[in-house]
Amino acid sequence: MKLLLKQKSVLPGFGPALGFTLFYLTIIVLIPISMLFLKTATLGWSSFWETVSSPRVIASFGLSFGTSFTAALINVIFGLIVAWVLVRYRFPGKKIIDMLIDLPFALPTAVAGIALTTAFSERGLLGSLLGSIGIKTAFTPLGIIIALTFIGLPFVVRAVQPVLEDLDKEMEEAAVCLGARRWQTFVHVILPILFPALMSGFAMAFARALGEYGSVVFIAGNIPMKSEITPLLIITKLEQYDYAGATAIATVMLIASFACLFIINRLQWWSHHRQEA
C-alpha cells in the first residue's frame, strides 16, 4: 500500500485505511457490478442484440433518454433562475427555500412519486387545473418529465450557487463601465463563467433521471411503447423470470451510467479549474 503514496506522510493508518476501503468497495460494489457484465457475456452477442434492439426496448430507451434530457434541460433553466434569486436577491423566507431545494435528495422517491401523481392526476390540485386547459399530465410522458424534473432539481441549483457566490462583482462593474447592457454583461461575462457548473449540473440531473424508478413508476402509466421507461422494463422482465433480457437491458443502462459518470468527472474538473484560474 505504502508504495502507492506519492509523498511520504507522518500521519499513520494509510495502509489499513486504504486496504479496508478497497476491500469494502470490491465486495459491495465492484464484484456485484462485474457480475452483470459476466452474466451478459454468457448471453452471447446475438441474443444480447436481439433483446436490446427489440422495438419495445428501443422505445423505452428513447423515452428514458428523451424525458431525462428534457427534465435536465428544464432544470438548467429554472435551476439557474432559482440559484440566481437565492444568491442575488433578498426576501423573507430565503433560508427556508434554500433548505427545501434539497428535498428531492432527502424525500424517498416512492413518496415523491405518489405525491406528484396525486397532485397531477385529473382530480388533483394541479392536474385539474391543467386539465381544464386541456393538458393531461399524469400517465403521459409529460408526467414522467415532471417526476424527473423533481428528482433532478437540486443538482443545477447546488452546482451553480457556489460559483455565483464567488463571482467577482468587480467584473460585472467593469463590464457596465465599458458600456455593456445588463443582458450583454450576462451573456458575455456571467454566463461563460457559470457554463461549466451549469453543464455539470445538467449531466448530474440527467444521469440521475436516467435510472430513476420510484418517482416515475406511479405517474408514468407504464404503457408499453408509449410510457414505459427502461428501469420499469427491467422490472417487468424480472417478473416474467426473463433474467437474460433484464440483464441485457441493465448492461446498456450501466454503460450509460458509466459514460455519464465519466462526463460529470471531466465537467467538474473543468468547472473547478476554471474557478481557480
Partner: peptide, 23 residues
Amino acid sequence: LMTLIDLPFTVSPIVSGLIFVLL
C-alpha cells in the same frame, strides 16, 4: 478510487437491485 466510490450514485436503483439477484 473517488470515481468508483461515486458509482452507486449514478447506477439506476433497479440495476443495483438486479446485480444482487444475479449474485
